[in-house]
Design a protein around this nucleic acid. Structure first.
Lengths: 334, 334
DNA sequence: ACCGATTATCGAAGCGCTTCGACTGAAGCG
DNA sequence: CGCTTCAGTCGAAGCGCTTCGATAATCGGT
């Protein structure tokens, strides 16, 4: 129950200086003598001063808050989302910014409101689809934004993402190196492709292209997320392609089921079928056997997104697209 | 690229009224004639006016923002966390509030900073442990807060949660009704119990108590989250307790593995072993067979937390503890 | 020892909003 | 019919901060 909040003028009085001097000590925007600085900082500490965010925002026209816009869709793997979110928050704090959480269900209006009311200085928009309704708005919003994911037309926007095409290709190349000749991709549920979700489609494209380039045989299939359907898909696959010996799984919710189904049909991993997953490390590690995988570098994507946004807030120019290179970790499944 | 933001005085000029009149139209705090109201609202629409959040916060001493404090711990199931988060955001928006995301890694300082700088009007703190270091701070913060989860000593705090003890008991009662005499609880990883996580311990207590009351035989075991360890635990369990026919699983990450292990050892569900899970519906539904389950009503918990916080912000008194009653959905596993 | 440049500090003017008190005219009342 | 009452509106005073320009005080250079 601290009483009324301490204001800058109380700090000034306590330190025996002008209000503006306190402000300059705290912001560092003008030279202040070492002696004065110390006295002011002491007073700040003694009184427990915290600048009032609203007043600061009003006077400086900077809220020091960025918006994080999350999707609320089926088929996006939530833990990965959460990794993005926490890395965005952590990164933002390093730039002395806070994060306001906006969810997609308020739609574009939510973005417009937050931006127009100067609640936030900029936006990080997650899980952008190929034809995303928020994109036109972002394009002509006064506030800068950074997208995680690439829309079909990314002109005039700043986007960051893992290079999913490369990730898909990397998996194929790894399997090819291991001597596999016939491979398959089990991807997202079909609804995700239909919706035009960039990362799913791009992974598939990368997979297909790499299959061509390496001279392998391969199919890419969507993959639902319940055990029975996964099991049926696997059964059909094993049946129709007896030469199949390599599997790429790009579906966090289904990897466990895939392994279960293979076990069910008596296929050993990696003896009979090698499996590469595109998923977070913890999932790969707690599977049996631990899976060779390409992880989504959520932490880095979030960090880069914030860094780019901060650069834009400073008025600096930034590259339009940033594609992070995937890395494959070999474990026991290939 | 909307130019400079529209201010209330531009709206006032456009509508031919005083600034204060516009303010009263928008807030409804004084009577305004129907005619004036219409003119003002028209101007607001035409000009695309959005009140400046900082100015509003400064003048009214209300930011209309609440903080959502998320944990960043292992062993908490992330999708459930996310459900909480989105329901908090959605609920807050219905009260015309936004949500600032704070993560636990900033610790208590983060809470203090957000509160002291008047960035937020109140806090919702998720996943509170029995002995949570944030609790003392919350207790004497000027800003109201609501906890999701119960600390050991909840005096002077407002807490909401699912009644996990009841949830554990409910599972046992259901198995007893189905005629099972010997049951087991597979809970969280042991680290979660050691940490003093309320929901894990309370579920176990409820389970144990109900086993006693119904006259069944039962054990409660922690459960790690990788397949091989789950498989070993199940093997040992089946081996040491041949009469075992009912399983309660309170571990979202492990349910899939549990079913896989039972399949591996030739046990049919529910023929040989009945399984009840405490987990979100989507996990229960996409398992094979679909699991009888008690779900964590994340949506309702979040909504209630926000409601309670809003009541406190209005200065109304609220109950200290709110326990939500669990409901069991019968599916194909029992 | 005087001058322009520098350095350190102050005072005051807002930033855009809410809210209080005051004012006006019309309605209600005996 | 003069008086209160009240609905409807206005003007102005802040809210706590940043920032601009001004003012002293200090300094090296000559």
């Amino acid at each position: 129950m601290s009483g009324r909040a301490v204001t800058i003028s109380e700090v000034a009085r306590h330190a025996g200086v002008a209000v503006s001097t306190v402000s300059y000590v705290l912001s560092g925007k003008r030279a202040i003598s070492a002696d004065t600085r110390r006295r002011v900082l002491d007073s700040v500490r003694v009184l427990g001063y915290h600048p009032n965010a609203g007043a600061r925002a009003l006077a400086s026209k900077r809220a020091n808050v960025i918006a994080l816009v999350l999707p609320l869709r089926a088929g996006v793997h939530v833990p990965v989302l959460m990794q993005f979110a926490t890395s965005v928050v952590t990164a933002a704090r390093r730039y002395d910014h806070d994060v306001l959480l906006l969810t997609a269900d308020e739609g574009s209006d939510g973005l417009r409101r937050a931006a127009a009311s100067a609640l936030v200085d900029g936006l990080v928009v997650m899980d952008v689809e190929l034809h995303d309704s928020r994109v036109p708005l972002l394009r002509d919003l006064a506030e800068p934004s950074v997208l995680i994911g690439f829309p079909a037309d990314s002109a005039g926007l700043t986007c960051v993402d893992l290079d999913f095409a490369r990730a898909g290709a990397l998996c194929v190349e790894h399997l090819a190196e291991r001597g596999h000749r016939e491979v398959a991709l089990l991807g997202a549920p079909s609804v995700v492709y239909d919706r035009g979700t960039g990362f799913a489609r791009r992974t598939r494209e990368g997979f297909v292209a790499a299959v061509g380039e390496t001279g392998l045989t391969g199919v890419a299939l969507p993959c639902e997320e319940n055990f029975d359907q996964v099991s049926a898909t696997i059964a059909e696959l094993l049946d129709s392609r007896p030469g199949l010996s390599g599997l790429v799984v790009h579906n966090e919710a289904a990897v466990g089921h895939v392994l279960g189904a293979l076990r069910q049909y008596g296929r050993r991993v990696p003896g009979d079928v090698a499996v590469v997953a595109i998923c977070p490390d913890d999932i790969a590690e707690r599977s049996s056997p631990p899976l060779t995988s390409v992880l989504i570098p959520a932490e880095e994507v979030g960090r880069q997104a914030v860094r780019l946004l901060m650069e834009k807030l400073e008025g600096r120019a930034v590259p339009d697209g940033t594609l992070l290179q995937p890395r494959l970790t070999v474990r026991d499944s290939t």
